[in-house]
């Protein structure tokens, strides 16, 4: 096998790791919030970006969509589309954190928890939160670019095409 061919053969494996990693991110993020959707709504409301009623709906829908995306990535169905949607969602989250940062709000992002205000003496970790989300965005970007992965439903359904 030539060096180029080897490099080509490595991509599906790299993409597989990215796909499963991103699936884990969504499943954990959604799983930690789904138990109390009212709290998730309050965490969205803490960003003060929309009326409470809208935040309630966004907060309830978001963890379920996160879990759905996580499951779809886990089984590898329509990887490019789910990666695009993941990337869009992450961009929205990053924008939300940056806006909270810019406005000087003292909140927990509610990314992997139910969020809310921080107590006295606690400082927000916006820089770290944004960096982390940018890392997840990179995983999604990789999958948009190279969506072909091993152990995926896509591969199973497409079987017969020369890989």
């Amino acid at each position: 096998m030539t060096e180029t061919a080897q490099r080509v053969a490595a991509w599906p494996w790299i993409s597989t790791v990215a796909r499963l990693g991103l699936a884990a991110v969504w499943l954990i993020a959604g799983g930690l919030k789904v138990g109390d959707l009212a709290a998730s709504g309050r965490a969205v409301n803490a960003y003060r970006l929309m009326p409470f009623e809208a935040a309630q709906v966004v907060g309830a829908v978001q963890p379920l969509v996160e879990i759905a995306l996580g499951l779809l990535l886990l089984i590898g169905l329509s990887v490019r589309l789910t990666a695009v949607l993941s990337a869009l969602l992450l961009v929205v989250f990053i924008a939300g954190i940056v806006s909270a940062w810019a406005r000087g709000l003292q909140i927990d992002c509610g990314c992997f928890s139910k969020g809310g205000d921080l107590g006295a003496g606690q400082s927000p970790a916006y820089g770290w939160e944004v960096t982390r989300d940018v890392g997840f965005l990179a995983l999604a970007g990789l999958l948009v670019w190279r969506p072909r992965t091993r152990f995926s439903l896509d591969g199973l359904l497409m079987r017969g095409r020369d890989e």
Binding site: L64, I67, L77, S78, L157
Partner: peptide, 16 residues
């Protein structure tokens, strides 16, 4: 597969 993905996400949203 696109239809399946959209349906899954809409379903998740409706549950919320």
């Amino acid at each position: 597969t696109t239809v399946a993905v959209v349906a899954a996400l809409v379903l998740a949203g409706l549950i919320g």
